[in-house]
Amino acid sequence: MKTATANIDLNALAHNLSVIKYKAENSKVLAVLKANAYGHGLARIAKALSQYKVQADAFGVARIDEALELRSEGVSKPIVLLEGFFSELDLPVLAVNNLQTVVHNREQLNAILDAELTEPLKIWLKVDTGMHRLGVNAEEFDEFYHALNQSENVHKDIIIMSHFSCADDLTSERTNAQLRVFSSITKSLPNEKTLANSAAICAWPESHYDWIRPGLMLYGVSPMQNADRDDLAIQPVMNLQSSVIAIRQIKKNEAVGYGAAWVAKEDTTIGVIAIGYGDGYPRHAQNGTPVLLNGRIVPLVGRVSMDMITVDLGNSCQDKIGDIATLWGQGLPVEEVAKHSTTIPYELLCNITRRVHMGIL
């Protein structure tokens, strides 16, 4: 028997990157590796995406420590800090390690203009087109752009970027509105531009521009609302599995687990699987959450414990102790588990804990 294991399918990763490139063949790829590459292993994923026949052109991370970890692991491709830097003390570190940074506020602008650097920085200037989270206001854009363009601390090939708020929802008018704002601000500029996240790569080809920024889609998860994931032709990269460690006969009206949260409606068989919220399996997964076991879906029953879950195997099951259950992955998309857990796939992937063994397929 084995305990919780997240097997990472690098062939699926390569396949997904090829699908992404096919959808936006004229754009370069900034692969988003935030949060330990969405739980898949930061250095592992970066190295794989640097070695395929079709490769990522650059990597996006959230924090400087993620970027420095990649450099320490020998990753030489461009790395972009998607939230920018948090202190002027970071700027010499960026210059020495050839790290690129997003600029989205005046404090960052002033720090760059006032810095004494040995090498100029590559800048991605973020403009707020309607997300209203990060980015300079449209009215400030020209000021920021010209100040950076004239600074000796900045490479002249500034990349201009923004971020969609509703690209996954084809019924929303906000994406078209953001496209119009971005075009009006940047259409007269020769700089490279980037706007498309995973959802926009799939559904908004007019947003592809010079760079695309796949995240969720790269890991084989659908970024779209109310869409058939099979149409996207992507494959799950993470396969989260664990073993059945006990099988018990349960009588009608007997309860299972903490709080007696599930009561058998008939005589049945319960399987206990060695995974729980201590491994990152969602604590709030509801009764009926699907688990894949021996080629069929069995429902979660009872509350998720720290180290175990229970599933209803039915009256005539042939399952045995030691059988391997898939919690999500090939044959059971993480999106389905998220729907039953009142959360989103991002959270499930990123919440995998240290005690889960990471394997490579």
Rank of each mutant, 00 (worst) to 15 (best):
H132A: 12
D157M: 09
H163R: 05
L148P: 01
H155W: 12
R133I: 02
T101P: 04
V103T: 05
A95M: 09
L99C: 06
H155T: 09
S151Y: 07
V127F: 02
N149V: 07
R106K: 15
S72E: 15
R71Q: 12
A111H: 06
S162I: 03
V93N: 06
L148Q: 02
N149H: 13
V102C: 04
L121H: 03
V154T: 08
E139P: 06
S76R: 15
I160A: 06
F164N: 01
N137G: 15
N98Y: 09
I158T: 07
V136G: 00
I123D: 00
N137Y: 13
K122E: 14
W124R: 00
A111V: 06
L99D: 01
K122W: 08
L121K: 03
K126V: 04
V103A: 03
A138S: 12
P78T: 10
A95C: 10
I79K: 05
R106L: 14
K156L: 13
E69H: 11
N153T: 07
E139G: 11
A138L: 12
E140F: 05
Q150F: 11
D157G: 07
L148S: 04
E83D: 14
K122S: 11
L125T: 00
L70N: 05
E107G: 09
L117P: 01
F164Y: 11
K77S: 12
N110T: 13
I123R: 01
L99H: 00
E73Q: 15
E116C: 09
L125Y: 00
K122L: 08
P92D: 11
T118E: 13
H104A: 06
T118M: 10
E83A: 10
E107S: 12
G135T: 05
N110S: 14
G84N: 06
E139A: 14
T118V: 10
V136R: 00
L121M: 08
R106E: 15
F86P: 04
G74R: 12
E116H: 11
N98C: 11
H104P: 01
L81H: 04
F85N: 04
H155L: 15
K77T: 12
L109K: 02
G135Y: 01
G135W: 02
A95P: 03
K126T: 03
G130Y: 01
V103M: 05
E83S: 10
I123S: 02
I123M: 06
V136A: 02
H163M: 11
F86G: 08
P78C: 14
L70Q: 06
E83N: 14
E143A: 07
V102Q: 01
A95G: 09
A147E: 12
D128Q: 04
V80H: 02
H146R: 15
V102A: 03
D142M: 14
L81F: 08
I159Y: 05
I159D: 02
L99W: 02
R133H: 08
M131S: 06
L134I: 10
A111G: 08
A95D: 10
G74D: 13
L121S: 03
F86N: 13
